[in-house]
Simulated scan of single mutants.
Amino acid sequence: MLKLLVVEDHALVREGLVRLLGQIEEGATVFEAADFESALTVLDNEEEFDLVLLDLALPGIDGFAGLDILRRRYPAMPVAVVSAFDDTPTITRVLNLGASGFIPKAFSGEALLSAVREVLAGNIFRPSGQNGARLDDATPVPPTKVSVRPDEVGLTDRQAQVLCLMVRGLSNRDIADQLDLSEGTVKIHATAVFKALGVTSRTQALVAVARYGIDFENVF
């Protein structure tokens, strides 16, 4: 019999997920928690769970910190994030933190159940065709209490260096001189940076750096 835990602070959403997940198979048991601390109590008091579905924007310990704790404390237990914050950097960061899947809240009930089944089958679920929301779409960013390393949002070391120098106001030519690269190579890295951040311009990239709290302390 499947045993699932839903961690979601909005009661209406939580109750809807519990009812929906109860349909995944006959006899499935679905527990619920309104915050991460309550979720830990449930996990400590019950036997092993087949899957935890975790929201990101939780009160107290947020979903990012909570996911890190769960991966350390229960390394064999799959955790899937279910969130409205479905931009590319958030999805990349979640999967890099060890989530078994990212399921957008915009999914239909049928699509959500299909995604959950994928995770239960041992696969990593990432929504197909996810190209990232643009900053000019005013996509909300979940709260986070800590800075984010560039690799957590999908940037390579070189891409992080290029972005760092963009933040400092250097032109592509100046960046090329600083990194001993050709200007064409810098443009290629810049395009990759924009794609990773889900943006289309330098201005939007700088906004993304501020919104995600990207930390460049160790890029050089």
Results as ranks from 00 to 15, higher is better:
179 L>V: 11
88 T>P: 00
205 A>S: 13
193 V>D: 05
201 S>R: 03
13 V>N: 07
77 M>P: 06
103 I>Q: 01
196 A>I: 08
157 D>K: 15
154 G>H: 10
209 V>S: 02
184 G>R: 14
216 F>R: 09
117 R>N: 01
30 V>N: 02
117 R>S: 02
167 V>L: 14
114 S>C: 05
72 R>T: 01
98 G>W: 04
84 A>V: 15
32 E>P: 03
187 K>D: 11
6 V>H: 03
111 A>P: 02
211 R>E: 12
132 G>K: 06
78 P>I: 11
51 L>H: 02
2 L>C: 07
40 L>D: 00
190 A>P: 03
30 V>K: 03
9 D>P: 12
176 A>S: 11
152 E>W: 05
100 S>Q: 13
126 R>M: 12
197 L>S: 09
185 T>W: 03
137 D>W: 11
45 N>R: 14
156 T>I: 06
164 C>Q: 10
180 D>R: 11
87 D>C: 12
69 I>N: 07
150 P>R: 07
121 A>H: 02
177 D>I: 08
140 P>D: 13
110 E>Y: 04
60 G>E: 06
156 T>E: 06
160 A>Q: 01
111 A>K: 15
194 F>I: 08
129 G>I: 04
20 L>E: 05
74 Y>V: 02
150 P>Y: 04
66 G>E: 05
142 P>W: 13
101 G>S: 02
74 Y>R: 05
131 N>Q: 12
123 N>R: 14
107 F>H: 06
113 L>Y: 02
184 G>M: 03
60 G>V: 13
78 P>C: 10
53 L>M: 14
41 T>L: 10
100 S>F: 00
30 V>T: 02
68 D>V: 11
182 S>V: 12
172 N>I: 05
10 H>D: 12
132 G>D: 11
78 P>T: 07
180 D>T: 05
15 E>L: 14
65 A>F: 04
175 I>M: 10
112 L>N: 03
186 V>T: 08
42 V>E: 12
197 L>I: 09
102 F>N: 06
60 G>Y: 06
197 L>P: 08
204 Q>R: 14
133 A>D: 11
1 M>G: 04
17 L>N: 11
26 E>R: 05
152 E>G: 02
132 G>T: 13
162 V>E: 07
202 R>I: 13
171 S>D: 12
88 T>K: 12
40 L>N: 04
65 A>D: 04
58 L>N: 10
73 R>D: 10
48 E>H: 01
73 R>S: 12
135 L>P: 04
83 S>K: 08
